[in-house]
Amino acid sequence: MDDYKFLFKVVLVGNAGVGKTCLVRRFTQGLFPPGQGATIGVDFMIKTVDVGNEKVKLQIWDTAGQERFRSITQSYYRSAHALILVYDISCQPTFDCLPDWLREIEEYASSKVLRVLVGNKIDRDDREIPIQVGEEFAERHNMYFLETSAKESDNVERLFMQIAEDLMKQARMTNVPRYDPNSYNVDSSSQESSCCSRLT
């Protein structure tokens, strides 16, 4: 039903093939689509979750990792409340690209956006990035860090729930309903719009 109180926009970014779409599918539909093709442009999913006693609606924009779609994907950063930066723990290059992604986020996203670093595919045996390395990187750049497996459904729920909770906390802290040009006001929940101040 539609009595949600908060609406948050979450955007997933990261290199091609790190499992962004699988994470979203796992979370929204509870399935792991084997042989998922590359996302074209942007994909969209929605999920309403309960945080505390409140209903929170998450609009999840799943972007294509391929370079050629960069222009369209970047245009989605701006309105995001949370950005999930995904890399593949079994693939060093996807980790090496993270600074580039961060630069892009700096450039195109709102400065107050909540940033989460996710190392995906922990079900795989050929790990190349130790968990500490990921943690360190996240800490250095002031991000949340989580390792997940879309296949085994490890930490996926936790990831999105955590984001929802944090965003809600933020929203509560700045409860004053102030006008936010990035929010979408046709929704009934206009008081949710100011929810993206930086976590301290």
Binding site: G41, A64, N185
Partner: peptide
Amino acid sequence: HRRYDFFVSKFSAMCHSG
């Protein structure tokens, strides 16, 4: 007060349907 942000985003995403 009406905004079309979502529609632009969603329709654009639909244009890339895979």
